[in-house]
Design a protein around this nucleic acid. Sequence first.
DNA 1: ATGAAAGCGCTAACAA
DNA 2: TTGTTAGCGCTTTCAT
Lengths: 336, 336
Amino acid sequence: MRKKVTLKQLAKELNLSISTVSKSLKNDSEISLKTINRVHELANFYNYKPNALAVSLKSNKTKTIGVLIPEILNHFFAKVLFGIEQEASKRGYKIITCITHESYKKEVEYVEILNYSSVDGFILGLSHETQVLNKIEHFMELKRNQVPMVMFDRVSDEVDCDKVIVDDKDASKTAIQYLIETGCKNIAIISTIFDLSVGKLRLEGAREVIKQYDDVTLIELPIDNIETEEEEIESFLKNNTIDAVLGLDETAAAIAINMSNKLGYKIPEEISVIGFTDGILSKHSYPKLSTISQHAEDLGARAAIMLLERLENKSENYITKTEVVKTSLILRDSTR
Amino acid sequence: MRKKVTLKQLAKELNLSISTVSKSLKNDSEISLKTINRVHELANFYNYKPNALAVSLKSNKTKTIGVLIPEILNHFFAKVLFGIEQEASKRGYKIITCITHESYKKEVEYVEILNYSSVDGFILGLSHETQVLNKIEHFMELKRNQVPMVMFDRVSDEVDCDKVIVDDKDASKTAIQYLIETGCKNIAIISTIFDLSVGKLRLEGAREVIKQYDDVTLIELPIDNIETEEEEIESFLKNNTIDAVLGLDETAAAIAINMSNKLGYKIPEEISVIGFTDGILSKHSYPKLSTISQHAEDLGARAAIMLLERLENKSENYITKTEVVKTSLILRDSTR
DNA sequence: ATGAAAGCGCTAACAA
DNA sequence: TTGTTAGCGCTTTCAT
């Protein structure tokens, strides 16, 4: 690799000391205007850029944040990542992206690697496995080292840190409420994530609403194996009389629509369907899926803002906060 | 942030010199076993990890690669990113992810920021805008600085660097051929990317095959405005007698299916549909979409391998190479 | 107005 | 076998 220009070289060529050059580039008032101009001129000529590594080493800041994402092929997380990236780059930060692929082990590894000075802080959603095992020692360690961190969506109550979450319980309440108001009485709730914090909350919300209605029933269909999801949903739809489906993730809802089509059930006349995550599947299903939007991009952006604010105003006794992103029910064609 | 343990502190506590400690940690043969053990013990006790920044500054290697992705909400790119990340992390590299959002300006910015020592090399797909404007000076600059880089999918012929591409022309030939063999005579080709290298190649391939058949026609529908894509495709389907659609991106194909459903055209009996990118939409459309898989994850992995090999065996006169990833036609339910 | 020097944390050639 | 020293590129304090 061709050597990059350094202060040293500029100094030599200008017959100045390194420190004078450094100050000149910052337009330090103690340097004469003439010198400042000379320095800038040569620096421009060589297209000088300070070595980021050296600056970081010196300042103990990297202007980089570590992002731990459970899964990139999931549209929700992709959108969050997008939101984070947008906001971070707007403020001059880079992001190092690590995909934990829902694995506890990878998560621990990444935290360790990044924590050694590659990164000023973390934004992360817990991996599925971490949440199920509830092993959070690696985050406690970050906490002890006072590394700024923001958890989003998949959070742990046991780690006291900044968080951005979605009002999941409210969201499913709204959805169920809507289904009931439009005349549905036998509602199925399908999920691959009943064991995640967010899944539990959504289920809770649904149950709470149903309890208020004597004539409405809730049937729960947990999917353990993604591989057979489609078959399970198909046979479920065939063997149960239901008039509504709430899918706790986008895929479950999309499959419900497709299988209804396959079985000849009319949507939304015979079965209403609502999903979570306003992703690409919702927009391109037929009929178009009514869905709970978690405003993933916004969520990501807010997580980034939260972290950056913290990074830029370091205080000793920081008090942790949790922001809640309001969801909205987007009505399209899969509901009455 | 709590101070991290440094060699200096270990040295002090052990009454050794910094260099002895450094060597001990590397199990250098010139250090006595006894000392080595003492050092390791204390290092473990403090959970010592070398400061990555300092190591990088010294070694001029960051073990980090910069990835420029045009668009993260596109499933193809998400999969490529996933492939890159997997492979990189397997080999102990981190990735800094930059989403150019199809913008030339952002692309230039990112290249500049990353090039100043944050990154050992680049993996990138050109942004839409860059490809249309054909402004590649920023990459020529990298090239001049001999920064290792691998372009994938959206590449520029004018930059001499490693590349991983897809056999786009062949892919659409295969698709068209299949449609013809299954009896289709009036084939529509729909695309939002006719102005991209890959789009052009796919179109070319289609035309070449069609030319061989007197009784088969090709109708081209370019979509300029994503916003109105659905309406355009719907009215196109209504106003043209066609019996097959090749969508050059996944969305176009998915929309074609949905609009056919809407208009009451039977798939695949009346209209066959083939898409590109074996993404989430293809698996969850109804009927399921037959599609060209570009093996995006594999593509990403190969790009990563290519870059890492180059990074780890630096040679003076490196000869650039281009790998082609073979596509495959995955037949599902939208074709006869 | 300019420069010398120390130091961020680490490595490695050289000395002892 | 262990230690001294210089240096990666930069910032900053303290001379001059």
